[in-house]
Simulated assay, not measured.
Amino acid sequence: MGSEMEESKEFVGEKNWKKTIFGRLKPYLLCVFCSFCYAAFNIISMVCLDKGMSRYVLVAYGYVFGTVATAFLALLLERKIENKISLPACIDILLLGLLGTSGRIVFYAGMEYTSPAFASAMNNLVPSITFILAIFFRMEKLNLLKLSGQAKIAGTIIAFGGATLMTLYKGITVVSLHASHTHAASKILIYRNLIKGSLLLLFSDLLAAAFYIVQATAVKKYPAPMTLTTLSGLSGTIMAIIAAAVPDHRASSWRLSLNITLIAPLYIGIVIFGITTYIQTIVVRTNGPVFVTAFRPLITVIVAIMGPFILGEALHLGGIIGATMIILGLYVTLWGKEEEKQSSSHQLETPVICDQEIEIRSQK
C-alpha cells in the first residue's frame, strides 16, 4: 500500500514537473512561431507590392480576411464568455484599429523604399521604444541606482545607435547573389530612399510600440482575447477601407487574381492579423508587452537568410553592423528586465518564509 502511494506521488510529481516546464516554455514557443510568421509576411508582402498592388488595398484586404477568420474562431472558442464592452474598452479597440492600420501602411511604405531585411532589422527598435513608452505610462519600473536599470538604459542607447548606423552608413556589399553595377546618380537616389525609408520605418516602430501598450491595457478591460482581436480587426477594417478609398478610387485596384495578390491578403489576414495577433494578445496578458517584442531579432535573422534567395537582395556591411548593435542592445535591455524580475520575486518570497517561521515558533 505504501509503495503504491509513493509511486502515485512520483507520477503526480513528474506530471506537475512536465506541466511546469511546458508552462515556462509555452510563451517562448508561441513567440518563436509568431517570428516565423512575420518573417514570411515580410517576404510575401514585398513580392505582392512589387507586383503593383497598392499598400492601402493590401492592408484593407488583410484586415477584411483577418476579421472574418477571427470572428469565426471567436464564435467557436468564446461564445460562452459574457463580457460587456465598456466605454474605455471601446476607446482602446478604436485605438488598436487606428494604430494597426496606420502602422502597417507606414511600414509598407518604408519597406518599399528599402527592403524586407532592412525593414525587419529596423523593427528590432520596437522593444526599445515599447520599453520607453512602458516607463512613461508606468507599466515598467526604472531604478538607475541598480545594475538592472543601468542595463535597460544602456541597451536602449545601443539599439538606437545601431538604427542610426543602418540609416547613415550603407558600406560594402557583403552578400549578393546578383552582380550589380551602380552609377553615382543612382547611388545618390538609393541613399535618399534609404533615409526616407528609415524615417518611415522608425515612425512605424513607434506606432507598433504604442499598439502593444494599448493592447496590454485593453486585454485587462476585456478578458476575451479572440473577441478583442475580432473587434479591433473590425475597427481596423473600417479605417483601412477609408484610407484606401481616399488616394485610389479605381475599382481595378481592388481586383484579386489567382496569384500572389490573393495569397498575400489571405496570409496577412488569417495568419498575421488573425492568429499571430491572438497569440500575442495571450502572451501580452501573461508576460507583458516588452516580452512579446523581445523576439523581433529572430525575424531579422530569418528574413536575412530568405531575402537573397527569394528577392535577390544584397546584404551590406552597415546593415549587418547596425542590426548586430540593435540585437545586442535589445538583449542587454532584456537582461536588465530579467534581473529586476528575479530580485523583485526574491523580495516577495522573503516575508512569506519569515511569517512561516514565526508561526512555527508560536506553535512550539
Rank of each mutant, 00 (worst) to 15 (best):
A89P: 08
C90E: 03
C90A: 15
I91H: 09
I91K: 12
D92L: 04
D92W: 04
D92I: 00
D92C: 14
L94V: 13
L94K: 08
L94Y: 11
L94G: 15
L95R: 09
L95K: 15
L99V: 08
L99T: 08
T101Q: 02
T101C: 11
S102H: 05
S102E: 01
S102K: 00
S102L: 07
G103V: 03
G103M: 06
R104N: 11
R104A: 03
I105R: 00
V106P: 01
F107M: 09
F107P: 00
Y108P: 00
Y108F: 13
A109K: 01
A109Q: 10
A109N: 05
A109G: 12
M111G: 03
E112L: 09
E112C: 01
E112W: 01
E112T: 12
E112D: 04
T114D: 05
S115K: 10
A117E: 02
A117M: 07
F118K: 06
A119E: 07
S120C: 14
A121M: 13
A121L: 11
M122R: 06
N123W: 02
N123M: 09
N124I: 05
N124Y: 07
L125D: 04
L125M: 12
V126T: 15
P127M: 02
S128D: 06
T130K: 06
F131R: 08
F131H: 12
I132Y: 02
I132A: 14
A134E: 13
A134K: 13
A134F: 05
F136V: 13
F136W: 14
E140C: 01
K141Q: 06
L142K: 02
L144K: 02
L144G: 06
L145K: 12
L145R: 10
K146G: 05
K146S: 14
L147P: 09
G149I: 01
A151V: 05
A151P: 10
K152M: 09
A154F: 09
A154E: 00
G155Y: 06
I157Q: 07
I157V: 12
I158P: 05
I158T: 14
I158K: 01
I158H: 03
A159N: 09
F160W: 03
G161D: 08
G161W: 07
G162F: 02
G162H: 07
A163R: 04
T164Y: 03
L165E: 10
M166C: 13
T167C: 14
L168Y: 15
Y169V: 15
Y169T: 09
K170R: 15
G171D: 08
G171K: 10
I172F: 14
V174Q: 04
V174F: 03
V174E: 08
V175F: 06
V175M: 03
S176L: 00
L177I: 03
L177E: 03
A179T: 13
A179W: 00
A179Y: 07
A179M: 05
S180M: 13
H181S: 13
T182W: 01
T182P: 02
H183L: 10
A185C: 08
S186N: 14
I188V: 12
I188S: 15
I190D: 12
I190Q: 15
Y191C: 00
Y191I: 02
R192T: 06
N193C: 00
I195Q: 00
I195C: 01
G197E: 06
G197W: 00
L199P: 00
L201I: 13
L202R: 03
F203D: 06
F203A: 15
